[in-house]
């Protein structure tokens, strides 16, 4: 058996020391070595968007990101989205408005939408469509996802919550 590598990863604001097989992608390390199973996988080839996470604020696909390259970068997953027990406005809106049906694409879309709202607090419907066009959803037809993101943007504006 070949040797594991050791890295300190910044995940959801916490430094995590982790030892893993060097062939693993960030997706595998998050799910298998850090037990953060909120990040999903649908193809592991960059063809569905289910594993989207934020790295240094940008939505990336964890299935294509080598974990050995992730040291020193800020990784955010769905587990870190809520503020303590208070849901992020995106989470609340997705739950309220049907943005999540089976919930499998949801973590990836939430993280992607978070990055969008950080850059553009009041995105148009067109911008939302473009921003999540790399996240396949088989359940919703996307419309309730758009509405959830719009509602979250509205609530964040009212409450002056940063994304």
């Amino acid at each position: 058996m070949m040797k594991n590598v050791h890295r300190t990863l910044q995940v959801n604001g916490e430094a995590q020391q982790v030892s893993f097989a060097p062939y693993k992608t960030l997706l595998e390390v998050l799910r298998e070595d850090l037990n953060l199973t909120g990040t999903k996988h649908g193809c592991e080839l960059g063809e569905c968007g289910a594993c989207a996470v934020l790295v240094d604020g940008q939505p990336l696909l964890a299935c294509l990101e080598l974990a050995v390259e992730c040291e020193g970068r800020a990784i955010e997953t769905v587990e870190g989205l809520a503020n303590g027990s208070v849901l992020h406005p995106l989470q609340a809106a997705f739950a309220d408005l049907g943005g999540a049906q089976c919930g499998y694409c949801t973590p990836g879309i939430l993280m992607t939408a978070k990055a969008l709202l950080e850059k553009e607090p009041e995105p148009s419907r067109e911008r939302i469509r473009e921003a999540i066009s790399g996240n396949l959803c088989r359940c919703t037809g996307y419309q309730q996802i758009y509405e959830s993101i719009e509602e979250a943007a509205r609530r964040m504006k009212e409450a002056k919550v940063p994304a």
């Binding site: 953060l36 199973t37 909120g38 990040t39 997953t77 769905v78 587990e79 989205l81 809520a82 849901l87 995106l90 989470q91 609340a92 997705f94 739950a95 309220d96 943005g99 999540a100 089976c102 919930g103 949801t106 973590p107 939430l110």
Partner: peptide
């Protein structure tokens, strides 16, 4: 079951 679906739980 909406909350679990949006928190990854």
């Amino acid at each position: 079951d909406g909350r679990a679906k949006v928190t990854g739980l």
